[in-house]
Structures are given as C-alpha cells and as structure tokens.
Design a protein around this nucleic acid. Sequence first.
DNA 1: CTATATGCAAATAGTTTGCCTGTTA
DNA 2: TAACAGGCAAACTATTTGCATATAG
Lengths: 149, 149
Amino acid sequence: MKKIVQDPDLSERLAARGLRATNQREQVYRVLLQERDHPTAEQVFMRSKQAIPEISMATVYNCLDALVKCRLVKEVHLDRGASRYCPNMREHYHFHCAQCGGVFDIDLPGSPSDPPLSLPRGFQPTEFEISVRGLCPACSNPRKRPARN
Amino acid sequence: MKKIVQDPDLSERLAARGLRATNQREQVYRVLLQERDHPTAEQVFMRSKQAIPEISMATVYNCLDALVKCRLVKEVHLDRGASRYCPNMREHYHFHCAQCGGVFDIDLPGSPSDPPLSLPRGFQPTEFEISVRGLCPACSNPRKRPARN
DNA sequence: CTATATGCAAATAGTTTGCCTGTTA
DNA sequence: TAACAGGCAAACTATTTGCATATAG
C-alpha cells in the first residue's frame, strides 16, 4: 500500500524519535491517542483495521514495540494477561477496577521525576510501575450508578 | 502416592486456611519458603521435583493458585513473562535489578495497612502492586562487586 | 466414602520469529 | 537503492483445561 494520507503532526512526532513514519505506525499511535482506555494489542488491532483493513497482528506488535522503545507509549502490566498500552507519558500510576475492568490514570502527588517512594541506600531506580486494584468511584457507589461488568 | 512424611507445621498452616494438606502443596510451599528468590512456576517445579519426582507442572500451578487464593503467597508480576511467587505477606514492594535479574523485597515506609499512596476521592483500593526497576546495590557499584549476568 | 487433588496430554492465549516482499528516506 | 517495515504463517512461552485415577478428611 502506498502511503495516501499522512498526518504531519504524527509523522513529525515519529520522525523526531528516529522512527520512519509509516501508515501503520501512525494509525496505531492514533488509535492509542483517540481512546485512552489502555487497550490490549488485540484491541488496537481491531480498531486499526477500521482504517487499514490489511494490517496484521504482527505489525501491530511491531508498531507498539517501536512506540514503546522510543518512549512515546508506555506498556502497562496489570495482573497476568495481555499487555496494555498507554500514550500518557506523564508520571502516573494505574487504578484497575475489579468490577468494571476500567483502567484509570492517576497522577502521582509531588513534583514530577521526584521518586514516588524512598528506596534503601544503594538502589538506583530507573522506572516505577505502580498499579492499584479496587473499586472505581462509579462501582463503589452502586446506588448512584450500578456497576456494569 | 500415599503420604509418607508430613510436616505438622506446614500441614497446620494449610489446614488453617481450609486447604487439604497434600504432599505436593506442602512441598510447593516449602520450596517458596526455603529460597525466597521469587521463583517462577517453572523454577518451583524443578525444585519440587527433587523431593517429589512425579510432581507435574499442572499440579504446581494448582498448588500455587491455591496458596495465592488462601493468601499464604503473593503472585508477583514484573514486566511480561512468567509470574513469580513470594511467601512474604508483609506489605512490601519489589525492586527488580535490570543487570543481575535479582528481585528484592522492600518494606513500605509507614504503618502497615496504611495506604502507601493517596487516591482521589471515590477510589476504594484493595490491593497495591508496586515494582521498581533499576540497579541493585551490588550492580550499581561495579568496583566493589562486578555485575554478573 | 466422597469431595477434592493429582498427573497427563491436549488446548489456549499472548507474543515472537523467519522469511519474503514492499516502502521510506 | 539500501535499510527498514509489513504481512503471513509457523513457532514459542506461559498457563489452563478435561478427564481418569488417587487420596485426604
């Protein structure tokens, strides 16, 4: 497929990170930016197919890996199961609702790039991954809005 | 296999949680308590075979699940890849060394069962999982002790 | 004696790889 | 036009399941 339309903004963001701007990469990134619900690779695949029907799962994985490696996207691991992808690069953690399955970004208190936890002497942290399970506001208040599932 | 030896301490701990005390369960739990290096199911399997050569991988998974469900053991998710298992039930988080691969338990500051993070109004946390990647003391100080890998 | 656990093998989910073709820079 | 990306199918890793037999309580 020849490249038909290219989104100059997305192309530039990719190029700025040293990534070739292909339709597939732009589409995968666009999908992540559009619905920030922390989709799995499978979900990204489904959504991307709407614009590029011939896209393959392997390409979706390749694109996601490329976006993660160049730090435009974060890979999120909640429990076992499929990795989820998140284009929010601010320091934040994830709240995973046990009832509705929703994943919420929650900003860390304190100044950015300030370690959210103190570590014993000698440990040099490079990356934090924090996830909290429980009930989100809607699901913990069933009178106001009954929990779906 | 008839049960030959039973460790009264482990049996009781299992029974106290409503679990039948089988040789396999005791052995799996014993393996976790002996070397607290956060082994994968595969590693638990290998070590358990030394005492019970006929133990199967499916049984190891069953035992681990049972131990996790009755809250004698925690399942730990570092990056993608195999789940790891940890018999330390104090509130703590994990430091995963990017160099040597070691996993370290680090106690949370503050009083136990005091939420380690503040959550926005309405979120009801039940479980925290915190992992930090980086270099452990030995690996971040290569002059004193060069990093293996 | 009965509910539950084990062991085996086959099935599944998620992800990765090899290889050939197509496209970007 | 060379290096890199895409598509397809097969491989792989971690885990789960179905079912017949064995065992704990």
